[in-house]
Nucleic acid binder design. Structure first.
Length: 881
RNA sequence: GCCCCUGUGGCGGAACUGGUAGACGCGUUGGAUUCAAAAUCCAAUUUCUUCGGAAGUGUCGGUUCGAGUCCGACCGGGGGCACCA
């Protein structure tokens, strides 16, 4: 008696991912299932995850990112698309140089070694990637074509050189990025950082300011948040470029007028001072014979170094004694100050200050005893008594104390001032012009570093800057370099650096700057469409595949990477490499994976070094090695410094790739952060095992059965559940709602559990078996994008000969997803009081009649007639008493 | 400081265009199985309750037959930008 169930259970082995997963990956590989043919006539779908930096290990955050992309890729493939799903490496950058300095490893060796390790890790996840298109941005074949693009952009006037300030570390003799400057000191050397003027290369992204802004409106498959961030970053403002005449006897400069940019010309009668940047020509000339002013200007320039200093610096100014004349009142003179908060590189480097309408100007005026005249007041106040003292008024209202503007709205006053000044001529030009300004700056791409794409130009003393001929590309990075000395190794590599001028043949020097690594990632998506091409792109292939249908990555790239890629697409179009406007049609920004932190007495510990116990409701953590108790810290973004990282190998090793993938997609909506917990992994693992157990137990009973959904009898519930789940999962995956799709899978398994157990015991009838077989095939198919290995294993077990990866997405039966009777909730005065089960197509009157017969309704009415009955078809009934 | 997003059980989260709040999972509790445990299965699980019900989606108000969803104010959490004239 006991024997038969026991034997059955014992005969079923647990699903062993360590054996199954490598097996199925080999099967897919051998069939080259995921290698994409550009000439395949089916409709194309390009899904791409932001490629990783080869830091050495794939961590669980990558797993989440790539699992999402893979679900989409596998789903779209099953839906009959020709899917492109490539992978590569964002392989240039500083960590390789840091490793070279610390460990005496060549950056190239370090990078390629990391790539090898990470490729193996990615492969163990079972991603449906086309590995035949793989490349790293540090491959000569890749940066060769990037140099080609640079030269094309140069020809089309999209690249130029100009002097620009950089953060210079005098000990390391290197340029630092802003985030490498901590409290005004270099992060590595600790030296005080200097501002240096270097001639650097720039891409003219500002040529496209307006277009990049406008085109955001059409990116309707992008998160609203990202579009808004880009919009703010571009920062368009509309204002007036206006000239203030300088009173000649107050200035030694030849300039006769001071140009300012303002977005509030309406407040011109509230002006009480002018403020100019320390680098403004007027400031420089005034400082020539005023040592105090010169000292002040120097102090302003120094403060520009660190972000922290900027934030805390007090608003300060210095009176130049120069005066300007008010444009509408020849007897009104205003002082010109040099101020530390005015930037030379925005607008004209000069402003007029209206203290009543701007808090900063008000603080400044109060500090230096300058007049404060209110010019805009909130509607309904009394103009004679309205005053501004400590708080500026910046909102809409009505103009006061402004002569001909009095009574107007600020908007009308803006136009009136603009119109009047445009009509006045001084020095042969209008006194003002309407002007649109953008916050967006040109993209400085010069980096004084070794491990990057060399900028392909030569500097010749006689001929100037000479581009390397395209036929002479690539300009390769030299291999024999040393990092023993500070500074850029390219700069002190004579045999690489010293060349003959391509034009005159005389001695010349190569450009030793390399490109910002954001350049590398600005066009890789285009290269993937034809990575074998002996040109940056194969335009036909690029136009066929692009834009990327679904791009997935972290929100931290919302601005720079995405904006640069949008610029590159436009520039490449001008150079004839692609013919499209936008690179990414659909964008999805996934949340981070976060984890608890653990801190022992010797510093941070990794989750794998810690054992967590629950003790009387309190969680305590202990170091595995020493047994000492450690502190459980806050939940934070996984980072090397806090050591709260989970490596993909660890988890694939212990539970298998499917479990890791499944967990990363469960519970939390994909755009939100997800907390990595042991309990969560266990839950996912349990589900994987449960599905396997149920299916493999029932497999002998189902093996020879032809799948056939039930139309009647008890088995119809099985078929209804399966087809409803199929429909819902399809809709969820289209919306990238992976967590909801998983909930539907759980529901289906819950429904199938009892009948599958019955079938396994040999007690199911023919109709049920056929319905079950149909349901099980559906279950395996809808799970396959998330748990591809398990699904193949299940598919084989139930007697299917094809691979799931080669099987089309099943089609749901419309009849099975619509119920013929529905249960309507019945409310009385908006509160639910009962249910009414009625035919789906029952008309309003029938429903009303049936509702009135319900006992709850009768009691509530107590013989009276209802005031109103609201019937929302298929939804709800509300009886108002 | 400015801009944006967000707030639902012990926890992660569902709830389509205003229509049964808490799907699904985790955790917890009870039970079955077991010599015992693990695993598994079954049941319960928003709170209060006089067991009839009542309250409930950050707080307070509004619109509506009906509000987690819409509007206004406030409070908390997260993010972006930050001398941008």
């Amino acid at each position: 008696m006991l024997i038969k169930t026991d034997l059955l259970l014992m005969a079923i082995e647990r699903y062993n991912p360590r054996e199954s997963e490598p097996y199925w990956r080999k099967v897919w590989d051998e069939k080259k299932l995921f290698e994409t043919d550009n000439d395949d006539p089916r409709p194309k779908y390009y899904v791409l995850e932001m490629f990783p930096y080869p830091s050495g290990r794939i961590h669980i955050g990558h797993v989440r990112n790539y699992a999402m992309g893979d679900v989409i890729a596998r789903y779209k493939r099953a839906r009959g698309y020709n899917v492109l799903h490539p992978m590569g490496w964002d392989a240039f950058g500083m960590p390789a140089e840091n490793a070279a300095m610390q460990n005496k490893v060549h950056p190239r060796d370090w990078t390629y070694r990391n790539i090898d390790m990470m490729r193996a890790q990615l492969k163990s996840m079972g991603l449906s990637l086309d590995w035949s298109r793989e490349f790293a941005t540090c491959d000569v074949e890749y940066y060769h074509h990037q140099q080609h693009l640079f030269l094309d952009f140069l020809e089309h006037g999209l690249v130029y050189r100009k002097q620009s300030k950089v953060n210079w570390d005098p000990i390391d003799q290197t340029v630092l990025a802003n985030e490498q400057v901590v409290d005004g000191r270099g992060w590595r050397s600790g030296a005080l950082v200097e501002q240096r003027e270097l001639t650097q290369w720039f891409f003219k992204i500002t040529d496209f300011s307006q277009e990049l802004l406008e085109a955001l409106d059409d990116l309707d498959q992008w998160p609203e948040k990202v579009r808004l961030m880009q919009k703010n970053w571009i920062g368009r403002s509309e204002g007036l470029h206006m000239h203030w005449q300088i009173v000649p006897e107050t200035s030694q400069s030849d300039e006769t007028s001071l140009a300012v940019y303002t977005t509030r010309p309406d407040t011109v009668f509230g002006a009480s001072f002018m403020a100019i940047a320390a680098d403004h020509p007027l400031a420089i000339s005034a400082a020539e014979d005023n040592t105090d002013l010169a000292a002040f200007c120097d102090a302003c320039r120094r403060i520009g170094t660190s972000v922290a200093a900027l934030e805390t610096a007090e608003k300060e100014g210095f009176d130049t004694d120069i005066k300007v004349r008010h444009p509408f009142d020849p007897d009104w003179f205003l002082p010109v100050y040099v101020a530390n908060f005015v930037l030379m590189d925005y607008g004209t480097g000069a402003i007029f200050g209206c203290p009543s309408g701007d808090q900063r100007d008000l603080d400044f005026a109060n500090k230096y005893g300058l007049p404060v005249v209110a010019v805009v007041m909130p509607e309904g106040n009394d103009a004679t008594s309205f005053q501004i003292t400590e708080e500026a008024y910046v909102d809409d209202g009505v103009m006061i104390n402004s002569q001909f503007l009095d009574g107007m709205t600020p908007k009308d006053a803006f136009d009136e001032v603009a119109n009047r000044l445009e009509a006045i001529e001084i020095d042969g030009q209008p006194q003002a012009q309407r002007e649109t300004n953008y916050r967006l700056r040109d993209w400085g791409i010069s980096r004084q570093r070794y491990w990057g794409c060399p900028i392909p130009v030569v500097h010749c003393e006689t001929c100037g800057v000479i581009p390397v001929a395209k036929a002479d590309l690539p300009v390769r990075l030299p291999d024999d370099i040393d990092f023993e000395k500070p500074g850029n190794p390219l700069d002190r590599h004579p045999t690489w650096r010293d060349v003959a001028c391509p034009q005159c043949g005389e001695n010349a020097k190569r450009e030793t700057d390399t490109m910002d690594t954001f350049v590398d990632s600005s066009w890789y998506f285009a290269r993937f469409t034809a990575p074998w091409q002996d040109a940056p792109t194969d335009p036909a292939a690029a136009d066929d595949w692009l834009p990327v249908d679904q791009y997935i990555g972290g929100v931290e790239h919302a601005i720079l990477h995405l904006l640069y890629s949008r610029f590159f697409t436009r520039a490449m179009r001008i150079a004839g490499h692609v013919d499209l406007k936008e690179p990414f049609k659909g964008l999805f920004t996934q949340g981070m994976v976060v984890h608890e932190t653990y801190r022992g007495k010797d510093g941070w510990l990794m989750p794998s070094e810690v054992r967590v116990e629950e003790d009387a409701g309190r969680r305590r953590a202990f170091c595995l090695d020493s047994g000492d108790e450690v502190d459980i810290g806050s939940i934070e973004k996984m980072s090397k410094s806090k050591r709260n990282v989970v490596d993909s190998d660890e988890i694939v090793e212990s539970c298998g790739a499917d479990t890791a993938r499944f967990f990363m997609l469960s519970d939390s909506p994909p755009e939100r952060d997800v907390i990595w917990t042991e309990a969560g992994v266990d839950g996912a693992h349990r589900f994987v095992q449960r599905v396997w157990r149920l299916l493999s137990e029932a497999a002998p009973a189902l093996e020879g059965v032809e799948p056939n959904p039930a139309r009647q009898g008890q088995a119809v519930e099985i078929s209804r559940a399966a087809h409803k789940a199929l429909k819902a999962v399809g809709e969820d995956l289209e919306k990238l709602s992976f967590n909801k799709a998983i909930a539907r899978m759980h529901e289906l398994v819950n429904t199938l559990q009892a009948p599958l157990t019955t079938a396994a015991a040999g007690k199911a009838d023919v109709a049920t078996l056929a319905a079950l077989k149909d349901a099980v095939c559906i279950l395996v198919s809808i799970m396959a994008p998330m748990t591809p290995h398990l699904s193949e294993e299940c598919y084989r077990t139930i007697g299917r000969t094809k691979l799931v990866a080669e099987t089309d997405w099943p089609v749901f039966d419309q009849e099975l997803v619509t119920d013929d009777t529905i249960t309507l909730p019945v409310q009385i005065n908006g509160k639910k009081r009962g249910d009414l089960t009625i035919a789906r197509d029952a008309d309003q009157l029938t429903v009303e009649k049936a509702v009135l017969e319900l006992a709850v309704v009768q009691t509530a009415l107590a013989g009276k007639t209802p005031r109103k009955i609201i019937v929302v078809p298929q939804r709800i009934v509300n009886v108002v008493v």
